[in-house]
Design a protein around this nucleic acid. Structure first.
Lengths: 341, 341
DNA sequence: CTGTTAGCGCCTTCAT
DNA sequence: ATGAAGGCGCTAACAG
């Protein structure tokens, strides 16, 4: 198949100047009053020789790469997977490509990634930040790269974000426990310090206090959003002289780990212990005991985040910083047992 | 924070020529016998002004972008999510970034994506191809972009690939059904024509034939790898005068759909119907009935694929095309019931 | 209506 | 041991 790799060659084949070809190809034929005939010939020949412009060269010249950096703590987690999917599809519709980075929920990695994306001259960044500290991300924004935060937000910054209302989700879940008679409720958290985590913990605390149930600090435990953490913390709970009647697991992976530990100990949900998990998943309804979960609007998070970023890039909303908080939904199933008082 | 955005500025601050600075920064100080003192000053000043080269300009000049295109049929599926994760991490270790594309398992989208990646001058492409037809991918390779196929392979091409031995996986699963007395086994497939799918179907067929069980074509059904397909096909099966005693679901999502239909119909696994699913997942063990699955070595697929691609890019293995097939593992749980003959 | 040319930031050949 | 300058492919300002 004949093919041509730069506009110069194509122009010489066409016996036209480079600029004319460039103009036609960029849809500026009309405004430069280039004849229909010429235009058509350019398009046809470009197609014939399978030519379309080198995006790298274009990026250098225009200082615009049509590229978005996406930093995710764990792309293997289907929660982030579906957010990534929505973002990728939306981006493509708008002519953008995604550079995917997995921060492994590690702050140093994240900081490096941010620098890397800056050097790659992405037009914007969507990030589910890992950390408590936020300097490295505000710095990037100050360098002039639009940043959109998702899933979590960065306290004491003015970065625009789209998240679930994590506080509300946790409040709903905890109050559900309480309504069914639970008083001794453990909370297995993810990374302490991450806003999504801390808002959830806060919702848990406030729900207890609202109902005059003392908060036991030892019942708030855990180190990260992974399965192993859920497993380990649950084992700790079961080793207690009197274990809690309920577990609030702050991520889909944590609850899976909990289930593993429970099963291993020969305990049954909800008869021996009740559980609610943050983050609805395709399998939640089909577990040994169908799980009551807090559903997050994943697609919407992705869609809104990209839309907002695009607006910033296109300067549609000059200075408006979007801070969007989406409603979660408590999906009731069978993993919480009614307890007699 | 002081900062400098191009090598020219940096050079003028340093009172050195651009070339000297470039050389030092690219680690060629020694071979050009640039003095230690000068080198150190260059490094220090670069750090002080937070300078590092513009990757777009570099890419244009060197005709190397340190970028890999990754085309995945569905990044929200955790099977592909974890493959993507491994690839991203491996790539980064080697200085590459990933441009992520979700083909939606659609051939036209895939073809467009391939063209796009070519225009973005990626150094290589890793693709889990959607289709039966393979022209668009071999074309890309002929344009000089190294291509590595994963998860599936493209028949009648010579493209290097890394997959699970899907045939073996299906054989093991089907023989397990047979060993426990099943004769009437349905097979809910994904996309007909995709190698991963067809190899599995072939394994299923061969296992039956090996044991002199007639293959009923109506028992091989289904349209894609999604949850809804599993649901729909299972409903069809249940509407039959006499439904099969076992279902072989060819993906993790299909089996979830099957479970949904079964549950809806008030049927129990494995008492009313047995099931084996392709693709082990974190939740497989914790379903109402712990699921017997065929595990694929996801991390290894990603790691080997990237490694092989890197070898091709670096021309380490001049012409050797890697065709790697990894062993699956049948994980026995409780979703298959022993049937009396 | 079309063409010439500068320059985006970088690396590297050639020159000294 | 260091510098000057061309050119990667593209777009747009300027010039007809």
């Amino acid at each position: 198949m004949k093919s041509v790799n730069n506009i110069k060659e194509l122009a010489s084949i066409l016996n036209l100047s480079i600029s004319t070809v460039s103009r036609v190809l960029n849809g500026k034929g009309k405004s430069f009053r280039i004849s229909e005939a010429t235009s058509k010939k350019v398009f046809d020949t470009a197609k014939e020789y399978n030519y379309s412009p080198n995006r790298v060269a274009r990026g250098l010249k225009l200082e615009k790469t049509d590229t978005i950096g996406l930093i995710i703590p764990d792309i293997a987690n289907p929660y982030f997977g579906s957010i990534a999917k929505t973002i990728e599809v939306e981006a493509r519709k708008n002519g953008y490509s995604i550079i995917l980075c997995d921060s492994l929920d590690d702050e140093n990695t994240e900081a490096e990634l941010l620098q890397l994306l800056a050097k790659r001259k992405v037009d914007g960044i969507i990030i589910a930040p890992t950390g408590k500290s936020s300097n490295h991300v505000t710095e990037i924004q100050e360098q002039g790269i639009p940043v959109m935060v998702i899933d979590r937000y960065l306290p004491d910054t003015n970065l625009p974000f789209v998240t679930t209302d994590n506080y509300l989700g946790a409040l709903l879940a905890t109050e559900h426990f309480i309504a069914l008679g639970h008083r001794n409720i453990a909370c297995i958290q993810g990374i302490n310090g991450v806003s999504a985590n801390n808002e959830r913990v806060k919702g848990y605390r406030d729900a207890l206090q609202k109902h005059r149930i003392p908060v036991s600090e030892t019942m708030i435990m855990g180190t990260d959003f992974g399965e192993e953490n859920g497993y380990l913390q649950t084992r700790k709970l079961l080793a207690l002289p009197e274990h809690p009647t309920a577990i609030f697991a702050l991520s889909n992976l944590i609850s899976l780990g909990s289930i593993r530990a429970l099963k291993e100990a020969g305990l049954t949900i909800p008869d021996d212990i009740s559980i609610i998990s943050f983050d609805e998943q395709a399998w939640s309804a089909f577990l040994t005991c169908p799980m009551t979960t807090v559903e997050q609007p994943r697609e919407e998070i992705g869609r809104l985040a990209f839309g907002a970023l695009l607006n910033i890039i296109d300067k549609v909303l000059p200075e408006k910083t979007d801070k969007i908080m989406l409603q979660p939904r408590l999906i009731l199933r069978e993993s919480v047992k009614k307890i007699l008082k």
